[in-house]
Each structure stands twice: as structure tokens, then as C-alpha cells.
């Protein structure tokens, strides 16, 4: 396997301690837990998605562990503006605040609370458009461009996280780039559901959810590959990464860094474990392999 040279990296306007970030919504609800993940070797952390007003989330079950992955329908629980307090102890750390809204204006409002208080922002576009008809904002290129611009124009490093549940993710990535995104994060969870045969009903309280974990790694690699062809800003690969070799593969598809979420279920020390395998003082610069599979 390829080994990488260790050390800090800069991706999409944000300085990270290494290429491995914590994905949004995994242990990202409190400052203390984000600090724990950083202490455990992550190069940066993304918080739980924060929205315009406090939300309790969907009724349970909110998450179920299945073969090869996890299906969740948390329903974006978040304390809204009160989350600013959680960041107090993390000043100067590589923390990216994930935000969501139902309109470009809402995105801008929430972004305003965190501008200057974090290394950057990540836009979660997988939530339904407030004035739309249930379709996620992330499936409409014009809206993606507008929401991105609303935040990027504040002058904060702006990453845009895409949903894989679209026909052509490259088109959406290009829209984010036009809106002024500094990087694209791909991907969020893949639409999924399971039914309890014992109780004859969908197992999640919300009926439907999103699949993450090893099962979606090939989907994520394909999305990153397609985006690399269509965009010129950095791509952060996310989805099913659980080993150093997965990180290298994502990079070869076109990712400059990766986010890791579900793999934390097996080991909260996963970041240090992967870093141990990935980095070596006689390793190469990541730039040598990013996108090399496109040659």
C-alpha cells in the first residue's frame, strides 16, 4: 500500500492536522466529544448539523445497525444557536460547523452565528427545501448555487456536502463550485429502509432513512470520481471509509481528504489507528496520488 508523508495539510481553505476528519452527525453534539475525537487522532472534526431553530429529531428507533452498515433517521436534532457555547473550549482547533436551513436566507443566518468561531462551515444540503415539495435542496442545482453563495459570500471557508441521491452528482458539484464553494464533500447517506419482519413495520420511527458505513464505500468512490472530472475545487471523500487503504482509494478517485463516520462504531480510536497505517516518514506527498486513477 502507498504510505503518505505525515503532517498538517490545507484543504478548501482549512488547515487540518492530517487527512482524516470526523464526519457530521457522529459524536458531534458536544464540544467535549469533539475534543475527544481530536485527541484521538482526527485531523479535523465536523459538528452535528445545526439549523435555524432547536429540533428534537424523529421519534425512535433513529438508528439500526445492519449488515455492512448503519441506517439512520435522526431527524437533524440540534440545539440551534445555543451550540455556539459548545465551541467555546475548541477555539483555534480544526473544527468545521455543519449547518442546514430550508432556504438560502436560513443558511446565511445560521452561518452568521458561527463565522469567526470555527475553521469553516459545511453545508448539509440533504434537508428538504422549506418552500419546495419535500425534495432535498441538494437535488436542485440552482438552489445549491444560491445556498452556497449565501454562505460563501460571508468570507468563511465553505464546504458543500452533497447527497448521492441524485441522477447526476457532477452537475450539483459544479453548481456548488459556481456558488463559491471552497471544497465539496461527497457523500451524505444513501436512501434506505428496513422492515421488521417480526413487527411487520418499518424499523425506523421515520420509516425511511439513510445508509452509511462499508456498504456505501463503492457508491462514494464513484461519486468522488465523477466530481473530480467535473470540478476544479478540492473534494473531501466520505462514505464507508474504515481503513488506510480506503483512504488511499478515495484519494486516487480524486479526494484531497476524507471524512469518517460510521467506522467509529467499531473503534472510537479509528483515526489514530488509520493514521498509524497511512503515514510514514518515508511516505509520499498526497498530491502524487489525488486523482491518479483518472490518468
Amino acid at each position: 500500500m502507498v504510505a503518505l508523508y505525515p503532517g498538517p495539510v490545507e484543504v478548501g481553505g482549512i488547515r487540518l492536522r492530517n487527512h482524516l476528519l470526523l464526519a457530521a452527525g457522529i459524536l458531534g453534539t458536544t464540544g467535549a466529544s469533539l475534543a475527544r475525537i481530536l485527541a484521538n487522532g482526527a485531523g479535523g472534526v465536523v459538528t452535528k448539523s445545526i439549523g435555524p431553530s432547536p429540533k428534537e429529531g424523529h421519534p425512535g428507533p433513529c438508528l439500526v445497525v445492519v449488515d455492512g452498515g448503519i441506517i439512520n433517521a435522526m431527524g437533524l436534532p440540534n440545539p440551534s444557536a445555543a451550540f455556539v457555547d459548545e465551541l467555546a473550549s475548541l477555539a483555534g482547533e480544526p473544527v468545521i460547523v455543519s449547518i442546514f436551513g430550508g432556504t438560502p436566507e436560513e443558511f446565511r443566518t445560521v452561518a452568521g452565528w458561527f463565522a469567526g468561531k470555527a475553521s469553516g462551515l459545511e453545508l448539509n444540503l440533504s434537508c428538504p427545501h422549506a418552500e419546495g415539495y419535500g425534495a432535498a435542496i441538494g437535488s436542485d442545482p440552482a438552489l445549491v448555487q444560491e445556498c452556497t453563495r449565501a454562505v460563501a459570500s460571508l468570507g468563511v471557508p465553505t464546504w458543500v456536502k452533497l447527497t448521492p441521491n441524485v441522477a447526476d452528482i457532477a452537475e450539483i458539484g459544479a453548481a456548488a463550485e459556481r456558488g463559491g464553494a471552497d471544497a465539496i464533500v461527497a457523500v451524505n447517506t444513501v436512501k434506505a429502509m428496513r422492515i421488521s419482519t417480526a413487527l411487520r413495520r418499518p424499523v425506523l420511527g421515520n420509516r425511511f432513512g439513510g445508509l452509511s458505513g462499508k456498504a456505501i464505500f463503492p457508491v462514494a468512490v464513484r461519486c468522488v470520481y465523477d466530481l473530480y472530472e467535473a470540478c476544479s475545487i478540492p473534494i473531501v471523500g466520505c462514505g464507508g471509509v474504515s481503513t488506510a487503504d480506503n483512504v488511499v482509494e478515495m484519494m486516487m478517485a480524486g479526494a484531497s481528504a476524507v471524512e469518517i463516520g460510521s467506522a467509529v462504531i467499531d473503534d472510537i480510536g479509528i483515526f489514530a489507528a488509520i493514521a498509524d497505517d497511512l503515514y510514514s516518514l518515508d511516505g509520499i506527498d498526497a498530491g502524487e496520488i489525488v486523482g491518479c486513477a483518472h490518468a
Binding site: G25, I26, L27, G28, T29, T30, G31, A32, S33, L34, A35, R36, I37, K48, G57, G60, C62, L63, V65, I70, N72, M74, P77, G261, S262, V264, I265, I268
Partner: peptide, 19 residues
């Protein structure tokens, strides 16, 4: 508690982030 398996962060405590 929401997930029960140590992923969602709902039950994390201060100051060590213990789940």
C-alpha cells in the same frame, strides 16, 4: 439516548466526552 451504540452523540457527557 437515541442510538444506544455510541455514534450519535446524544448521551455524551462533559468534560471528557464519555458516552
Amino acid at each position: 439516548m437515541k442510538c444506544g451504540v455510541g455514534l450519535c452523540g446524544s448521551c455524551c457527557t462533559d468534560p471528557h466526552g464519555l458516552r
